[in-house]
Write a protein that binds this DNA or RNA. Structure first.
Lengths: 256, 256
DNA sequence: TCTCCAAAACTGATATGTCAGATTTTGTTG
DNA sequence: CAACAAAATCTGACATATCAGTTTTGGAGA
């Protein structure tokens, strides 16, 4: 699950990628402080490439920065998550239209196979009483891949990138919390793949909209509660969270 | 027609804005070289804020950079323009749905007024034999504002920003060339505004799709020709274009 | 224990200088 | 005059150092 499209220099690119996986792997949960200096020391570079990486991550919505006050992994608001859903619904329903309109039999077959596999994984996840975070993340990553496969089949690179951006961002926001898990209907993705493969563009559009918005209201409600709970609480300053990975640990214990 | 949403430091933000208007005003046409040093000298800063501004402009698609070889205003490919249309169709039809679904009478009235004004301006443009570049740009800017008004009425900030980004980018690409002008039908925007104000979400969606894609094929054909004409021509190195504004002139005549 | 405030510590922003790579120019040779 | 190579020039990437805000901290006083 990685964007390449360099556009950035060597060290800056490396810092960007390290930070990105650090965030997406949950080692750097929302609120984690990201000091230019400490990161530079950790990476063995100056602060310049770090600043470039953080600027890009900020533009992509992973990070928020206030001048001379600090940079941290972003805490999304309910409004932003809601907006993300709206934009993603627009992009993915467009991809669904184009897929239904012009996907080759091979692409359709491939999508069906992916959908089947994905549904299997979700089912096996449902069986477990307490699925591990890693297991959930693994399945969700494949979920993203499934949707990107639809977009890729359209042949429109710009659409793929826009959807990936939107998907990955939500992925990160969701997995930063212990979200109550809403099980999906049986054959949820297989049915979608069938709709996209056999239906007209318009019905594919509609099917995708339903798919995208299925868990939306539950999730928004959940986050609204979390937001209310955090009302006026820790508003600024680094969050003293307990984190597992080596990344954040190293970062915290670094002097200077 | 300006994005604010800082996210960047003082000098970097200023450099970004200056460069952005320089590009959008046509003073820096596609292919113009943008040297960190020269720009820094022109702005009276170091190269650091300039680099930050250029990195952001690159992420937004206005500029392309190759490490240690140069940065220049981007020359779009036909594929990118086509992709831009697909993404924009997705975003704007979504905005149309939401507008039809939830716009207040006041917002509808306001949109109709804007549409009427816009159509008037297009009509007066059609009357002129050789409309000036400035006059065309002025009307096109209002065209962008019209579409942003629809998005703003949805109350979804993320959708507004995504549409603005997509619109402004195409705006810049189109106005960098002397495009053959395809006149619009009578009351083109007024009819759209009416459709969005009175119709159901689905019909609003469809109306917007038709609107967005109206000139698309002509434009893509036009650019395909231009691209073919430039086949293998000036591939690298600064373009020695003749430019009007003071911005580019200063830039070119700067030593170092 | 709580409030307030100044000093200390930390932060991102920026200037300056250097480096290696890419490009362009120039000089040479056929 | 063409082809080619070396040198001069230009480019962005980056390191180091400093600055001015912001936040945290450690009492002093209530």
């Amino acid at each position: 699950m990685g964007i390449s499209i360099t556009g950035m220099s060597d060290l800056g690119q490396q810092a960007y990628e390290k930070l990105r996986v650090g965030i997406l792997d949950g080692e750097l949960p929302p609120g984690s402080p990201l000091s230019h200096r400490k990161l530079a020391q950790l990476f063995g570079t100056s602060t310049i490439p770090v600043a470039a990486a953080l600027q890009r991550l900020e533009a992509e919505g992973f990070v928020e920065s206030r001048a001379r006050a600090g940079t941290r992994v972003k805490m999304p608001t309910v409004g932003e998550i809601s907006g993300n859903y709206i934009v993603r619904e627009a992009l993915e329903s467009q991809a669904a239209r184009l897929f239904a309109q012009s996907a080759t039999p091979l692409q359709k077959k491939r999508l069906l196979r992916l959908a089947n596999d994905l549904d299997k994984r979700y089912r096996s996840l449902d069986k477990q009483v307490t699925p591990s975070r890693e297991a959930q993340a693994e399945v969700e990553k494949r979920h993203v891949e499934f949707h990107l496969e639809i977009a890729k089949a359209t042949g429109c690179q710009e659409l793929v990138l826009a959807i990936e951006k939107s998907r990955v961002l939500l992925f990160n926001w969701l997995f930063s919390r212990s979200g109550e898990y809403v099980p999906l209907p049986q054959g949820w993705h297989t049915r979608l793949a069938e709709d996209l493969s056999t239906g007209q563009p318009l019905s594919a559009d509609e099917a995708m909209r339903l798919h995208v918005t299925f868990r939306r209201d539950d999730i928004l409600r959940h986050f609204a509660e979390l937001e209310r709970a955090a009302e006026g609480k820790i508003e600024r300053g680094p969050q003293h969270r307990k984190v597992s990975g080596t990344f954040a640990t190293k970062l915290q214990n670094l002097p200077r």
